[in-house]
Design a binder for these strands. Structure first.
Lengths: 231, 231
DNA sequence: TGTACATCAGTGAACGCGCGTTCACTGATGTAC
DNA sequence: TGTACATCAGTGAACGCGCGTTCACTGATGTAC
């Protein structure tokens, strides 16, 4: 919608780019992070990659193809971040879930362009991306199952659904508000990274302890998981 | 980015529209809800309002002016929703905070176009809108102060900051995920409204009870608020 | 109640622009022999 | 090791399109007298 003067394109010495595919993806992520999906354009991405507007077609077909690939990388990356968090949590189920949550927010902060794309745009209708999404959020679900000791296949109780949606909501909301700059009121610039590192873990820990109390009290959640092996 | 054939414009009998200003705002919200900010165009809004592309300029100056007005309404509406929730909560500080949270999510579900606009786009640089945002989220902050019995002016303790960011995150994340269709895995179509009505209150209640426990334990939070008059 | 006229709200054609995509092309790379 | 040639990766001009905004205009409304 808004017009801007394009930044100077980077001239190139060789005819072939070398790694245009990766450059286009990087430029897309940067552009999305700067201007959001409404500021995205294939020509601008080509410009930033120092390449003619027709070049991207050789790698991604069309604009949708490029965005779909960035979205695919987003789900792949978030899945990896959640699984790494889970591993980092060690032998305590609550710690594993907490570290998944920290991984979720950390991924969003490191890849704002990718993260935003997962939750907006028409890519939501793409069935392969829907499957990727299910895979990603399935890691969180397994974390909650792990926490409550509910094996795959067994349906979750209402209180356990509530726990899953709650953990997801709290980390997602934190990430989205932080990226939208809504925490800037409380901490400007460099302080924000510190906010992430100090406030979030405590906040999550507290939230999760609430889940443990519920698990202990609820008749439909047979046992709070306590200490078990990491997956 | 994507081109679509425009829906048939609604023809009009009279030369003057009657209430074009309101019609443009409604059309903008609907368009934002359908296609997001990247699908917004002033011409499409004019088309849907059955009016020539030049007509909106008489009411809003330019495209930015129209979006800014919708954003202003968004902050005004969310402020009202939070305050109504607070009043609905009655004499219990925890209930007041919980009802604020339910109001937050309910507003988002009823006005997806407005809600999205508050957290994306370049309107974030507009200083009057920033003030409106501070006013809106200040209601949440007052709710937390109320809960912990911390008068305005007194700085919040770290644990109380954590509580504020946590409540905000959980309701915001819930709203954003629900609007992004990410809960569709668990509940399709009509069930989603039910999900809102049953899962969210329990989830919030549980989260808030965690905050109460912290308040009772932490030395920097002098007293859990218990029962006090609603503001 | 009627009339002159200022003001307001909308028209529709026109403008220049950036966009996505196409096309015939060309430079560079790699492979078969 | 050298050469012919297919394949690959990028060019740049061109296309048609929808966009936001402008402009001179006109129909409708409301107000002064």
């Amino acid at each position: 919608m808004v017009r801007r003067t394009p930044p100077a394109p980077a001239p190139r010495e060789t005819y072939h780019h070398g790694d245009l595919r990766a450059a286009l993806i990087d430029a897309t992520e940067a552009l999305l992070a700067e201007r959001g999906l409404e500021g995205f354009s294939l020509r601008e991405v080509a410009r930033r990659s120092g390449v003619s507007p027709a070049a991207p077609a050789h790698h991604f077909g069309d604009a949708h193809g490029l965005l779909a690939e960035v979205a695919r990388l987003a789900f792949e990356g978030l899945t990896a971040a959640l699984e790494a968090g889970n591993a980092r949590g060690g032998s305590d189920a609550l710690a594993r879930l907490r570290e998944q949550g920290i991984g979720y927010v950390d991924f969003a902060m490191r890849h704002p362009g990718r993260f935003g794309l997962m939750f907006q745009g028409e890519l939501r209708k793409d069935t392969t991306l829907l499957q990727a999404a299910n895979g990603t959020f399935g890691v969180l679900e397994r974390g909650v199952r792990d926490f409550y000791g509910v094996p795959a296949g067994t349906p979750l109780s209402p209180a356990q659904w509530q726990a899953l949606l709650g953990v997801w909501s709290v980390v997602h909301g934190y990430a989205h508000l932080a990226l939208a700059g809504r925490f800037d009121l409380f901490a400007a610039g460099g302080q924000r990274r510190q906010l992430l590192q100090t406030v979030l873990p405590g906040l999550l820990q507290q939230h999760l302890e609430g889940l443990r109390a519920v698990a202990a009290a609820a008749p439909d959640a047979p046992r709070p998981a306590g200490r078990r092996r990491a997956r």
